[in-house]
Structure formats: structure tokens, C-alpha cells
């Protein structure tokens, strides 16, 4: 066991897979010589060389197109889109090409690639460098979408994503890069499509993703001091979605809250609320409540950004109020 930062875990996860499979290559802007603008690929160039770790021009379509063509012909590329907001300039490659090619070719083409990206807010970067885009990606059939919240999960889910034969959008939360966690020694391989119960509880189920997980856990600790025992589930994987863990939890607690960083409309929690309404309605003791960023772009000023993103306090307040009403 060792303490490892979330950002170092990214490089460790990729390196672990590059050592076992020479088809794994990494491309992106500033990812080789500079080790990534978020330092998530430090050491890869030194260990694996410029043939496998490649700095690119600022050409997001070219980067993802190259990863696509390489994946179609035998490599297993990991491509970086530096800020997830930049998906907007290469979304055609993701949506129309990567996601649909296997289907349109009736399975002739396999697309084993990972797009890793710095996602999420809280760093005072403003509206074009802070978005949470998981719900953009999960709307497209053919894409898998994961967001780890701990260093150990970063390694294990990165390994699972690289070994998976389908395209995976791997959202790294920028606000968690500096967070440290205990990580076991040796190879770590996780499973896509699995949620984790981070804190068991009886009174309410709180679903969270990415940086909202530590906030939900802090909220649960706060609620515990006031006699509310909340269960916190780290969703981790939106596609595939571990509905079993979620529905089982709702059956036990009777209340569901989602904590989402994305703007309100069509956030991932909306799909889960709909699912629970369809399949667990009679388990519910009250309405599902979604705690999201309001439907606004994220402001830059720290005071404003903190005001609009879900916080431990706002989560605790919402849950407490709902359970008391």
C-alpha cells in the first residue's frame, strides 16, 4: 500500500497497461515531453519512448481520428482531450465515427480505444474549461463512460478501459488530481459497469460521481451527527450502468438523491430518476431529488462557482429537509 495522488494514478494505470501490451499507445497535446498539462502522463515518454507516447499539434479532430483509425487496425490507443470542453471541436469523430462504426459495419470493425479527459469544475477556470460532459457522451449509443473518484479506481478503471474492446470516455476530475488515496501494490484491474457503496446507510441513498463523491461523503458524515444514516454510492460508470446496486440500495433506504455537477437538464441523474420511477416506484417513500448545478454556464469567480456547484453543505441540507418533510 502506498499513498498516491489521483493524477499519478492516471500515469500508473496507463503504464501498467503499456508494460503488458505493446499495442497500447498514447497521443495528445503536451502529453509526452511535458507529461501532460495536468501531469497525468509523467514518466511515460521516458519509459516507453516517442514511438508510443506522442505529442500532437492542437488538432483534436486529427488526434481522435488517428486514434480511431489506429484502433480499427490493431492498436489500442489512449488519446487525451486536454479539457473535456474541447470535445465540442471533435465531437463528430466521437459521435459519428467512434461510437457508430462497429454497428454500421455489422461488427466488422472493433474500436478498442480510450479517450481520457480533464473534466469538471471547481478550479475557477470559467465556463469553457470546467464543464462536466458525461451526459453528452452517455446520450450516444456505442460509448462507454466512466468517471473515477479515487486513485485506486483511476488505475483499475483505466486498466479495464484499455482492455475493453469498446470505446471508453474516461473522465478524470480535474478537482481531484491532487487528492491522495491508499493504493495497493501490484497490478490493479477493475470492472466497468460497477458502482461502489462508499458508505452504507439505512435512511437515504445518495448517488454521486467524480468530485461529488467526496462531497456526498462529507454530507453523509454531517447528516450522521443529526441522526440521518445516508448510504453513498459512487456511480463510477454511467455506461454500462450498475442499476442493480442502485435499485437494491433504493429498496433498502426508500429515498434517492443524485449529486451531479452537470447543469440540470438531462444530467445523468435524470436518467436514473426515470429508471427508479419505472422499476422501483413502490420502494420509494418520497420523491427522487436531484442536486445539480443550476442550468447555467459555470462562472469563474471562486465565490460564484462555489455558490452554484453542489457542496457538502447543500447536499446535507437538501437531504435533511427532504427526510424531515
Amino acid at each position: 500500500m502506498a499513498q498516491l495522488s489521483y493524477r499519478d494514478a492516471v500515469a500508473r494505470g496507463i503504464a501498467q497497461e503499456m508494460r503488458r501490451d505493446e499495442r497500447v499507445v498514447v497521443v495528445g497535446e503536451d502529453i509526452a515531453g511535458a507529461g501532460g498539462v495536468f501531469k497525468t502522463t509523467v514518466g511515460l515518454l521516458d519509459e516507453f519512448g516517442p514511438k508510443r507516447v506522442i505529442d500532437t499539434p492542437i488538432s483534436e479532430q486529427a488526434i481522435l481520428g488517428a486514434a480511431t483509425g489506429a484502433a480499427m487496425t490493431g492498436l489500442r490507443p489512449v488519446a487525451e482531450i486536454m479539457f473535456s470542453d474541447f470535445f465540442a471541436v471533435c465531437w463528430d469523430i466521437v459521435v459519428n465515427q467512434i461510437a457508430k462504426t462497429r454497428y454500421m459495419t455489422a461488427g466488422q470493425v472493433t474500436m478498442p480505444l480510450v479517450i481520457k479527459t480533464g473534466n469538471g469544475g471547481g478550479l475557477r477556470f470559467g465556463a469553457q474549461h470546467s464543464q462536466s460532459i458525461e451526459n453528452w457522451a452517455m446520450a450516444i449509443p456505442g460509448l462507454k463512460v466512466v468517471t473515477p473518484s479515487t486513485a485506486e479506481d483511476v488505475i483499475g478503471l483505466m486498466a479495464a478501459a484499455i482492455r475493453d474492446d469498446d470505446p471508453v470516455i474516461f473522465c478524470e476530475h480535474k478537482g481531484l488530481y491532487a487528492a491522495k488515496g491508499e493504493v495497493p501494490d501490484g497490478e490493479i484491474v477493475d470492472t466497468l459497469g460497477t458502482a461502489r457503496i462508499r458508505r452504507p446507510g439505512h435512511d437515504a441513498t445518495i448517488l454521486a460521481l467524480g468530485m461529488m463523491v467526496p462531497r456526498a461523503l462529507a454530507a453523509a458524515e454531517d447528516l450522521a451527527t443529526r441522526g440521518i444514516d445516508a448510504e453513498v454510492i459512487d456511480v463510477r460508470s454511467l455506461v454500462p450502468l450498475d442499476t442493480r446496486t442502485i435499485l437494491d440500495s433504493v429498496a433498502r433506504t426508500g429515498r434517492l438523491f443524485t449529486v451531479e455537477e452537470n447543469p440540470q437538464l438531462l444530467g445523468w441523474g435524470a436518467e436514473i430518476a426515470s429508471l427508479v420511477a419505472d422499476e422501483a416506484f413502490w420502494d420509494l417513500d418520497g420523491p427522487v431529488q436531484r442536486i445539480t448545478t443550476p442550468h447555467i454556464p459555470l462562472p469563474s469567480a471562486d465565490s460564484l462557482e462555489d455558490l452554484v456547484m453542489p457542496s457538502a453543505e447543500s447536499v446535507a441540507r437538501t437531504v435533511e429537509k427532504a427526510l424531515q418533510s
Binding site: 481520428g65 489506429a70 487496425t73
Partner: peptide, 14 residues
């Protein structure tokens, strides 16, 4: 335009 970038990928792989 998309497939020019994808052709690059196949060429890179080759």
C-alpha cells in the same frame, strides 16, 4: 472530412 483523420490512424498503425 472525418475520414482523412481516420485514414491517418490506419497509416499510423501500419
Amino acid at each position: 472530412g472525418a475520414h482523412l483523420t481516420i485514414a491517418n490512424g490506419a497509416a499510423w498503425s501500419a
